[in-house]
Every structure is written in structure tokens, then in C-alpha cells.
Simulated assay, not measured.
Amino acid sequence: MAEGNQSIVTEFILSGLTDKPELQLSLFLLFLGIYLFTVLGNLGMIILILLSSHLHTPMYFFLSSLSFIDLCYSTVITPKMLVNFVAKKNVISYQECMTQLYFFIAFIISEGHMLSAMAYDRYVAICNPLLYNVTMSYQICSWMVGGVYSMGFIGATIHTLCMLKVVFCKANKINHYFCDLFPLMELACSSTFVNEIVLICLSAFNIFIPSLAILGSYIFIIASILRIKSTEGRFKAFSTCSSHFSAVAVFFGSAAFMYLQPSSVNSMDQGKVSSVFYTTVVPMLNPMIYSLRNRDVKLALNKLFQKK
């Protein structure tokens, strides 16, 4: 990746979450537990959906894709962060840094668009149930998931190509626990004006468009729920929507706080806290929010254990 770049810097040092030695072990154990829970939860969700035939529906097809995305971008970030807690100097090469940046951006963009695809699926299921099987056919769902990944990897390619043109000549200590856009631009010796414009434009698109799609879907969903006469039916539907909306609010809120402000205003210490939510907390919570409170998933687990 570095062949076409004129950078003098060949490796970076990640500063991590904190420089206090007394907190390193506690944070290592905390984030190791979070990562193991994330891997087990999301991988278990994918396997359960594959093995349970009655979960082979559009809703769970999207859910398995979301679990895969969560598993991937958590794995891109967390293992390197854990190394930082036990190593005296957490070094990452230029090539590794750009690779981490590329895949992180690809999966984080895909996450936002996947959440909007899931919201649309719920909109069709609640507002147009008679047309659900036609509207959300396997072919259409496959195209939607393909579009989600395409958006992610196209965005990642644009951001990474812009970053490859940035020259790093002196400072090499990244004030973050992974290679992200703002911390890297702070180290640049060359102009980052183009990078900032691209960042604001693509971030606005990849945050506002899915957010508007989710908000629009939920407006129609809530309107349909209010027409349900059964109190129990309304409560159940609202409960499902509130869980999904909570995860959406945490993900988009923390991402917007990090990326939709100028670099002169953005504080990297605040950015680290914000980043922790969408890189570690959200991937851990998603299996619980979308799965463990779901009756179909509990039924599938019971059947699987009975067969064992």
C-alpha cells in the first residue's frame, strides 16, 4: 500500500485509551471479556441461523449479516487494542495501519446501511404483511445485502486512497487506540483539506441517509402499531422497536459525534470515548438486542439443545 506514497514514516505508535499504568490490567480484562462475549454472541447467532430452518427468513438473513459485520469490525480493532494494554510500545506498521483503516471504514459504513435495511424489512412486515414474501424475496434481500457491502467498500476505498496521498514525515504517535481518520490527519505534514471535505461529505451521506431511512420506516411502523386494537400486540411491537431504536441511537449518535465536526473542534480524548461505543459496545449488545429477547431465537436454541 505504501509504494505510491512519499511518507518518511514507516510505522506508527498507538497511544491507546489511557497512559495510566494502574488502569492497564483492569482495562485489558474488561475489553478482553467484551471481545470474547462479542465473538461468542455474534458467531453463535450466525451458526444458529444457519442450522435452524425456521429462521431462514429475510429478517434473520439480515440479522446474520449484521452479526458478521459486528464480528469483523470488532476483530479489526479490539485485538490490537488489547496488545496496547500489555505492551510497552504498541507499534503498527504503515501498511498495517492503512489496512486496518480500510477494513474498519468498510465495516462501519456497512453497519449503518445494514441497520437501515433491517428497519425497511420491519416496515414491510408490519405495514404491508400481505406483500411481504414478494417484496422481500431472497433475490431482493441478496441485492440489498450486496448493496450494503458495496457502499461500505466503496467508501473505504475513497477514504483510504485519500489517506495514501497524505505525507507523514515527523510525528508518528497516533493519539488513539486504532488507525482512524482524524488521528492520522493530525500527524500529516501535507494538506488534509481534501481529506476533510471527503470525510464530511461521505460521513454526512453514510449517517444521514440510513438515519432518515430508519426514521421514516419507524414513523410508518408506529402509525400502524397505533391502529392495533390489542394492547398486548401494541406493547410487544413497541418493545421490539424501542430495542432496535436504542441500538441505532447509540451507533449513529457516537459515530456522528466523532465524524460530523471539524478537526479543529474535535477532541481526540472525547473521540476515544465515543469510538469505544461503536467499536466495542455496540457489537457486543447487538446479539442481545436483536436475538436473546426474541421468541423465535429462544425456540431455535431450545430445539438445538434438545437435539444435542
Results as ranks from 00 to 15, higher is better:
Ile92Asp: 02
Lys20Arg: 14
Ser211Gly: 09
Met144Asp: 05
Leu82Trp: 00
Leu25Thr: 12
Pro283Val: 04
Glu3Ala: 14
Ile289Glu: 12
Ser217Trp: 05
Leu226Arg: 11
Leu82Asn: 01
Asn42Gly: 02
Lys229Gly: 12
Thr75Ala: 12
Met258Ala: 10
Trp143Asn: 15
Ile105Lys: 04
Met1Ser: 11
Leu130Arg: 13
Asn286Asp: 15
Val124Ile: 10
Lys80Phe: 13
Val145Arg: 08
Leu51Pro: 11
Pro262Thr: 01
Ser64Leu: 02
Pro79Gly: 05
Ala171Met: 13
Tyr120Met: 06
Val86Glu: 10
Lys20Ser: 12
Ser116Leu: 14
Leu29Glu: 07
Thr38Arg: 04
Met118Gly: 00
Lys307Asp: 11
Ser242Glu: 04
Asn266Leu: 12
Phe85Met: 01
Asn302Glu: 12
Cys179Phe: 00
Phe62His: 10
Asp121Asn: 15
Ser116Pro: 05
Ser291Gln: 02
Asn266Tyr: 15
Ser230Glu: 05
Ile47Asn: 10
Glu111Trp: 13
Arg234Lys: 09
Cys127Gln: 08
Cys241Glu: 07
Ala300Val: 00
Lys229His: 10
Lys20Tyr: 11
Gly4Asn: 10
Ile109Pro: 02
Ser116Ile: 08
Gly152Lys: 00
Tyr60Glu: 02
Leu164Thr: 07
Tyr35Cys: 00
Ala171Arg: 14
Val265Gln: 03
Leu161Gln: 09
Thr18Val: 09
Gly271Tyr: 00
Ala125Trp: 09
Glu96Val: 03
Asn294Leu: 03
Thr157Glu: 03
Phe153Lys: 02
Ser217Met: 01
Ala223Leu: 07
Leu36Pro: 01
Leu202Cys: 11
Leu199Phe: 09
Asp180Ser: 13
Ile46Phe: 04
Asp70Ala: 06
Ile92Asn: 00
Leu30Arg: 11
Met59Asp: 13
Ser191Trp: 09
Thr135His: 04
Ile34Cys: 06
Ile77Lys: 01
Met98Gly: 07
Gly271Lys: 02
Glu3Arg: 15
Gly152His: 00
Tyr138Asp: 08
Ser74Tyr: 02
Ser93Asn: 03
Ile47Lys: 08
Phe238Gly: 07
Val134His: 10
Leu23Cys: 08
Lys308Ser: 15
Thr18Lys: 02
Ala255Glu: 07
Val134Glu: 09
Gly155Arg: 01
Gly152Leu: 00
Asp296Leu: 09
Pro79Ala: 06
Trp143Pro: 04
Lys236Arg: 07
Ile228Val: 13
Met1Asn: 14
Met258Gly: 04
Asp180Lys: 05
Ser110Trp: 01
Cys97Thr: 02
Tyr132Asn: 06
Phe235Met: 14
Val198Ser: 11
Thr10Met: 08
Phe37Ser: 15
Phe31Tyr: 13
